[in-house]
Structures are given as C-alpha cells and as structure tokens.
Design a protein around this nucleic acid. Structure first.
Length: 458
DNA sequence: TCCTCTAGCACTTTTGAATCGT
DNA sequence: AACGATTCAAAAGTGCTAGAGG
C-alpha cells in the first residue's frame, strides 16, 4: 500500500502537537482480500462499466485502525486515472491506443455509514460493495464515471469530520493500493480475467464449468468463443453503488458551499511513455514504481506537507529512495497478507499557517455520548474535484497523476504511470503497500480554489 | 473490416415482505 | 402482542451473445 499525507493548507493548530499528533499519525488502513486483488492484478484487472452502473469485483473492502473512537470520520472513495493513455487489447495484451480522453466528471463515493465514529469504522471491515462504475457521462445516479479502455485505481480518503458539511475543513488522509488498479472496459478483453471473475463472483456461479448452467454451456459455440477471445476476451464485472438521494443532497450542499474552481486545462500528455504495462514498468523503475523486490519501500507511506517550495518538486520520486519513516512503516505492514497503510503525521511544522478559525474538534473533547450513525443520508457519490490538496503543488498527486495535465478538474497532477507497478509484475512486497496522503484543507479561500468536492451534474 | 458498445437473455444471490410458530 | 424463524417472490447482480454503430 501506499501511504502519503498532504496538507494542502495550513495544519490545524492541533496538528502540530498534542493530542492531534497522535490522532493524525496513527491511522492505518488495510485492504481486504489482498490475495484476490493480487491475482487479478497480476493478470491485469478489468472492471466492467455500464450505463446503469456496475459494481466492482473484487470490491473494495478495508480495515481501519488508529482512529479516535469517539471522533467522527467520513470515508470517501474516488477513482484516479493511472496515466494519460487510452488502451486497446491486442494479441493477448494491452497496448497504448493513444492519448486519454478528457476526464469525465470526477465523482467521489461516500460510504453510506459516513459520518460515523472511529469505533464504528474500526470494529469491522468497511466495504464499498455498492460503489458502482458507469461510462455514462450524464449519469444521474451518482455513480463514478469512467472512460472505457482507460486505467484507474481507487483512492480512499479518511476525513475526520462530524458531518459531510465540515469535510471541507477537515484533515483528510488518502490511501491507495497499487494492486487495486484496473482497466475500465465495457466488455471483458482478457479471458483470464473473465474466468477469475466467474470463479470468484457468486453472481457468476451460473457460468462456472461445474455450474448448472447447462443451457448456456451447451450453446457455447467454440467459434464464438474464439472470436470473442480474439477480439475481446470479455468478461468481468464491476459495480457501482446504489444511488441514493443522500448523496445528491450532499452534492447540492457542496455545490453551494464551495466555489467550483475553474480548473486549468493542460493538454500535455506525457508522450515519453507510450505503452500500457510495459511503459509503466519502465517509468516505475525510473521513478518510484516498485519494479523489484523493494517495491514496498517505493510505496511506503509518505506524508507531504504542502509548502510552496516543496510542492513544486513533488516528492514522489522520494518514495523509492528517501528513507522516510513512512516507508519503513509500509514495509512492516507488508507481511500481514493484506495491503495496509499507516498514515503519519506530516511535517506540520513546515506548513504555512492554517486557518485557525476553523474549529476542529478532535480528541477526548469530542467524545460524548455518541450514537452510532444510523443509515446515513449522505451516502452516494460525490462529484469531486479533489483538490487533493488545496494547493496544486502541494498535492502529492504525483502519486496519482494520470491525466493530470489534461484533466479539467486538474486535481490529479503529478507523475502518472510510474506510480504503480505494472500489473503483470506485481510483487508481494509491493502489493502489500499502500500509498497514503494526508491533507488538510486550508482556509476557505484556498479551498475555494481547490475544492475537495466539486459539484457536477448527477 | 475492426473495434467498441449495448440490449436482452438465463442464471444466481440478495433483499424484504408475508407467514407461521413459540 | 411481541419476537424469531422460515418461506417465497421480486429485485439486483452476473457473464454470454448477437447485433448495432463508428
């Protein structure tokens, strides 16, 4: 897993020391079903996207720890482009087919339980089963919109906030798991992926060889299979979350609360690396991608402190070489069999002053008779222009940087492909690592420029 | 012609209301 | 009347397939 924390804005006073230090620095997130994810990743995970929305499989499920039991948190997930390319399946492998299409409206899925006390999130694994993916740019259900034949990876955000409305001013930490990257498709391309999906997804039992689906089996025409396999070895499910009205409400509120910044469009896609997996591989080796046994270190947790000077240079390249404590943490977690990431407190000291006016309640003080969150009304997907960091530079986006330059939302900036290891060469070490980012929303002014959540149609 | 996408199909799992027994 | 267990139908989630469209 990859751990990283960024503070786009000035850190809350509480963060610099005292209780918050403890709070901020111990959040740990672990991916469940790591082995299954790895299995898919090694082949090249594909996720089906449909107009009505499709769930993911495997679906994202994580374990959290290090949260303040009585403090409330909001869990979010969004999809980040892996690079600036469009791919095509050719001769049993993925190849770059050109530049990526302009990124669709960026949306973020809010876990239905949000906001909920840390104790709630930690008592059991958190599943994002209902998260759905769609290729319908006009989707009104709040599903996460993706482009087919493009690569993405989910990003998890842990925000300490009493409610969704205060998310904007709260510290949020971001985690990513390299092995969860996938290619969005409308039909499975790799037959191996199809088989894996059928073998592991309960809903696809009917297609298993030993299954009872005699009819379909009987109808299977070898020639047809051949054909499909050749042109597109389709088969893979993905999913989405059920749209509720909650997320819409949240979206609307966000829309009113935040000014959607005019994202700058940069149409510069790195052309240097034009090759899906292969290209990435190269990049990774060159930058931070785990190309070898030490991939773990490369993905080790890191927290970026957004400072005018620091953000410019980005630190992604340091993942692989700087002996940051975070990396060591990541390594320590690697052996667990699950991908996990432990956040660390960023160099708060270097962060510019934050807006102290934003009241942050954390720690014992916030512990009162708290009731478990009932079914949350905020559930759903949010359009999010994640300004990961309020400040572009600060954002450690390099980690995710897919289309960064091209995205209108511009939230993802930074190195692209190099961030993640090629699916085919996933190593156990690297797989166990999570990338973590920690950000803090700066003052309102700053955030109005780089809103965490951007409103867009649903 | 190739590639991508879509709709409909059969199948499975999940969900929730209805029913029954204690 | 309240509660829990069971049943059953509808809804939702799967990959497969043929065909449409660029």
């Amino acid at each position: 897993m990859y751990l990283k924390s960024n503070f786009s804005g000035p850190p809350p006073a509480s963060m610099t020391a005292g209780p918050d230090a403890y709070i901020q620095g111990n959040i740990r997130i672990t991916l469940e079903d790591t082995e299954l994810w790895k299995t898919f990743h090694e082949i090249g995970t594909e996720m089906i996207i449909t107009k009505p929305g499709r769930r993911m499989f495997p679906h994202c499920k994580v374990n959290l720890s290090g949260l303040i039991p009585c403090a409330k948190y909001v869990l979010l997930v969004d999809m980040v482009p892996e690079d600036g390319f469009r791919y095509k399946w050719n001769k049993e492998k993925w190849e770059v087919a050109g530049k990526a299409e302009p990124q669709p409206p960026c949306r973020t899925y809010v876990h239905p339980d949000s906001p909920a006390p840390g104790s709630h999130w930690m008592k059991q694994s958190v599943s994002f089963l209902k998260l759905k993916l769609t290729n319908n740019t006009l989707d009104q259900h709040g599903h996460i919109i993706l482009h087919s034949m493009h690569r993405y990876h989910p990003r998890f955000h842990v925000v300490q906030a009493d409610d969704l409305f205060s998310v904007r001013w709260s510290v949020f930490q971001t985690f990513t798991f390299p092995e969860t990257s996938f290619t969005a498709v409308t039909a499975y391309q790799n037959t191996k992926i199809t088989k894996l999906k059928i073998d592991h997804n309960p809903f696809a039992k009917g297609f298993r060889d030993e299954g009872t689906n005699k009819k379909r089996r009987a109808n299977k025409n070898p020639s047809c299979l051949e054909k499909r396999t050749k042109a597109s070895d389709i088969v893979n499910p993905e999913e989405d979350s059920p749209p509720g009205t909650a997320f819409r409400i949240f979206h609307m509120l966000m829309a009113f609360l935040f000014v959607l910044p005019k994202m700058k469009e940069e149409d510069g896609i790195k052309e240097e690396s034009y090759s899906p997996w292969a290209a990435e591989r190269e990049h990774r080796v060159r930058t931070d991608s785990p190309a070898g046994a030490d991939t773990r270190d490369l993905y080790s947790a890191e927290q970026l402190v957004p400072t005018p000077a620091s953000y410019q240079s980005y630190r992604f390249h340091e993942y692989g070489k700087s002996p940051s404590p975070s990396s060591s943490i990541g390594s320590s977690n690697s052996g667990s069999g699950r991908s996990s990431f432990e956040s660390r407190v960023p160099d708060v000291a270097t962060v510019p002053d934050h807006d102290s006016s934003k009241p942050r309640e954390v720690g014992p003080s916030s512990c009162g008779p708290q009731h478990l969150p009932g079914p949350q009304d905020y559930t759903g997907v949010l359009n999010m222009s994640m300004a990961q960091a309020s400040k572009p530079g600060v954002i450690s986006h390099h980690i995710y940087s897919p289309y960064s330059t091209e995205q209108h939302l511009g939230q993802w900036s930074g190195p692209g492909p190099s961030q993640y290891p090629p699916p085919h060469h996933l190593t156990t070490d690297y797989a166990a690592q999570a990338v973590h980012h920690s950000y803090h929303h700066g003052n309102v002014a700053e955030w109005s420029q780089y809103p965490l959540f951007s409103y867009s149609c649903w």
